[in-house]
Design a protein around this nucleic acid. Structure first.
Lengths: 323, 323
DNA sequence: ATGTTTCATGCAACCGGTTGCAGCCTCTGG
DNA sequence: CCAGAGGCTGCAACCGGTTGCATGAAACAT
């Protein structure tokens, strides 16, 4: 079939180990020999078989990336960045979608362990206990979830929430609704905590809500009833759904009510009004997660915690409170 | 580290080959022995190493999925479906993004070949010649591009374009603008061809345009100048950008101009007005592509061509021509 | 001239499985 | 009672690389 290391060895009149070293430890082989071997290899179209190499080195040069839902617009930028960054370090990445199912997630990790050097868990649905158990099999990095003693990348939504609420109060809004997310969501808890700690805000918490457009649509009536003039939604999808729901009920955004989302997904930029939102550093998170993972693969588990700043992107869905 | 086949063999008092057969050819081993071995394996937490297995069987049970841009909302549903379908068949999938760069695409395929049983090429930027050359190394399935003699999944955008234009003419529009895509795009060509073949249409072709919101924004003035009252855009992003551009110039959609997109991305559903669009069967394409690939891996290259129907989703961006 | 490094290469075992072949045992039929 | 068949298991080679160790030659120091 395709050329192997022995073919190259035979064709260039050296032992296989020399060919091997030509690729994996070039400084150990004479310059002349090396160029000859390389020429022959090139000629034969030889490429080292990474899977075979993994067998002895213990390094597959593959990473696993597990997300809850590839279709959720929050993830693609992260996947893209992680994948590109990994490739630059000569790693390939398996991407898998768990359909939000912890069972699937666990099985996936188990079958993946032998094929990867590490796994990136993004917004995992797995229990902390399960994660603790699996970490014996393969190094992890967890994104957007706090698991103690484990390398973690967090996006500081608490800070983002503060930014958003400051922005709203600066525009004159005092009664502010926080649309929380699904029950167990870590980000939702962070947002609530940050919001509750702020002075001069008349906070009303509505939810839990489904983290989707539907969730936003469904809560519109409640928002109106609450008398809030400023809203911070769990994410952009909820914000967009809410705006739609308010619109249907004759409430204008940002004329009557100001709405801030979270995530900065593409749809928010395309929507009308363009969404003011807390931008999550998803691409940066993807890159850092890869770095952290590779580092923890090399040096053993380093329970580093990296927190990334979020930023507020002011667009058109927020305005001064009407007097 | 983790248990190997030899650990299991030793612990259960049989030869490694028996353990091997317990997993890969259970009917060859005595029922009693089998249950014992399985129990020991379970107990030791043994899982076969797929990479090692691949070495002798020649089957990695991995697939490669290469797309131009993960962030393009057209792809995630396809990736998600392909990945889920592959997993159901006990295959894992590498996902890689080429950043629209043919060079990257080629290198990617080359390093991937040894690690996968086949590669899914979605909207490849590679030249036909390059694809022909690489097919010797690994089986391919190509999605949304015509490469002769190669297994292919096509989404019938020509038919979709016809549907869209019929819809527009039925609404009374006669002068219709087609916003074409990037120069070399196969889909763009199909759309143009289909549109040109239709009777009773006063067709004006504008473009090429960048396949993005910007592309749509930039062509808005031209659309107005053309006098068209119906528009078929290269894709949803272009359609959304166009609507924005028209809006800025005081032209209302669908009041003054009707706009149809292509792809049915999520943003189109969230946008206002909700986009009328040609729905691409991306998830189905992902699944079929995997099936076709696995089949061509098993039976050798079968140059099948599968064409999937598209459908028109009528929402709010199209209306009767104003008299 | 001799002893010591240094450099380059070969040898062979090993990574974790798979598989063709052979041998043993038991069962069956004549 | 024996030959043949079939079922199960062990042996050992092999997949495509890597790597510690040994060897030999050349370069250097004394």
């Amino acid at each position: 079939m395709t050329a192997t290391i022995r073919d190259v060895a035979q064709a260039s009149g050296v032992h296989v180990s020399t060919v091997s070293r030509t690729f994996s430890a070039p400084h150990l082989v004479n310059a002349e020999t090396r160029t000859r071997v390389l020429a022959v290899a090139e000629n034969l179209g030889y490429r080292p078989n990474r899977a075979a190499r993994a067998l002895t080195t213990g390094r597959t040069h593959n990473l696993g990336l597990i997300v809850a839902d590839i279709s959720n617009p929050f993830f693609p930028p992260l996947i893209k960045a992680a994948q590109a960054h990994a490739r630059a370090r000569d790693y390939h990445v398996f991407v898998a979608d768990t359909d939000e199912d912890p069972q699937v997630e666990e099985e996936l990790i188990q079958t993946l362990t032998k094929q990867v050097d590490g796994v990136l868990l993004c917004s995992p649905r797995l229990s902390n206990r399960a994660i603790e158990r699996l970490r014996a099999d393969v190094p992890f990095v967890v994104v957007n979830r706090r698991v103690k003693g484990m390398p973690t990348i967090l996006m500081d939504v608490g800070q983002g929430a503060r930014l958003a609420i400051e922005h709203l109060t600066r525009l004159g809004h005092r009664r502010i609704a926080l649309l929380s997310g699904p029950g167990g969501s870590w980000t939702s808890g962070e947002m609530r905590e940050a919001a509750a700690a702020m002075d001069g805000v008349d906070l009303v918490i509505l939810g839990p809500n489904a983290p989707t457009e539907q969730g936003g649509l469904a809560v519109a009536a409640e928002v109106i009833a609450s008398g809030a003039t400023g809203v911070l939604a769990y994410n952009d999808l909820v914000a967009i759904g809410l705006i739609e729901g308010l619109y249907e009920r004759g409430v204008r955004v940002p004329g009557d009510v100001s709405v801030v989302g979270v995530d900065d997904i593409v749809s928010g930029r395309l929507n009308r009004p363009k969404l003011t939102t807390v931008a999550m550093p998803t691409a940066a998170a993807g890159r850092m997660a890869v770095d952290l993972l590779l580092q923890s693969v090399d040096d053993g588990a380093t329970p580093t915690l990296i927190t990334l700043e979020t930023g507020l992107v002011v667009r058109e869905s927020t305005a001064e409170r009407r007097v």
